[in-house]
Design a protein around this nucleic acid. Structure first.
Ligand SMILES: [Zn+2]
Ligand SMILES: [Zn+2]
Ligand SMILES: [Zn+2]
Ligand SMILES: [Zn+2]
Lengths: 151, 151
DNA sequence: ATAAACCTTAGAGTTATATCAAAGGTCAAG
DNA sequence: CTTGACCTTTGATATAACTCTAAGGTTTAT
């Protein structure tokens, strides 16, 4: 039976976070000492580890709650239930990556246009591009650049 | 001289958001009518467009504030000031993408292990992997899998 | 003149995931 | 017994970028 700070050290989650997860309904300490200290059983610890692993895998606390309810009652759920959560998460992650990749393109494009030198920014092409509303466009003349590169 | 709702329609930012940006110090309406309505000048509008473009390019409001102060006082700043902000942003975006890519790997790995069928989740390999603390590892035996694939 | 549409402000609420503070009770070592 | 480490709870704070509400004043069109 671990105390909260032992479980914190063991699990890599802070005692604060463990209490927060408890308040969120994800975990619990199945026993308390007479004075109210949390005591975590082996099963409690396994559950905390499950939560930690799922969090590291990228699931939100909400999604972890769903996974936990499946875990607690496996024969009332199907593998489809599990993959559904996982697939939706994967889709969301892919969408986020796609957005960030567009942003990366914008930023690279801006950086390509400015030498970053120590002269005054009076004619800085990045500032100018942002004024021209041109940051979101795809690489200008990427075809032409390719042509030029192959010349 | 535009009113706020006209500028909202023109800029693609809501009137709420325009007021919020004003409170945040990013923009302003250089005039008000006698009754207090905001009136945006051409210069005000250009500034709003700058903010919108920078936001679309992925800059945070804090970063936009920095860019705006450079824009307002260009000859006191260098291109290096501008690229510094942009490079740091790009680094942060790349880091975020890397994190999400790891998460994507985890999720794909989990999905590869489970058929997602309609049978009971009693032996679901995703749940088992999360219990085994195995979600963060790289593809198991990716080398071996490659070997097998080439067999 | 009246109704619809538009504007104002201050301030609260949202989302997700913690993280900390205050005020106090408990436990182990010396 | 005292000191210091550890534990408890409730509730506040933080982040980013909005989003909305309440309560009321203004403009415009018919
Ligand atoms: Zn490029
Ligand atoms: Zn420049
Ligand atoms: Zn894979
Ligand atoms: Zn399964």
């Amino acid at each position: 039976m671990m105390k909260i700070s032992q479980l914190a050290a063991h699990s890599g989650l802070s005692a604060h976070t463990l209490r927060f997860y408890e308040k969120s309904g994800l975990i619990e300490a199945s026993q308390r000492t007479g004075s109210g200290y949390r005591r975590y059983s082996e099963e409690d610890i396994r559950r905390v580890e499950f939560v930690k692993t799922a969090r590291d895998a990228g699931f939100s606390l909400d999604e972890i709650a769903q996974l936990l309810s499946i875990r607690l009652d496996r024969d009332q759920h199907t593998c489809e239930d599990v993959t559904s959560i996982t697939r939706h998460k994967l889709e969301a992650v892919n969408e986020k990556i796609a957005q960030l990749t567009e942003i990366r393109e914008s930023l690279e494009l801006l950086l390509e246009s400015c030498d970053g030198g120590l002269d005054s920014a009076v004619h800085c092409s990045i500032i100018e591009a942002l004024e021209a509303g041109a940051a979101k466009t795809t690489h200008p003349n990427e075809d032409q650049a390719t042509k030029e590169a192959t010349l």
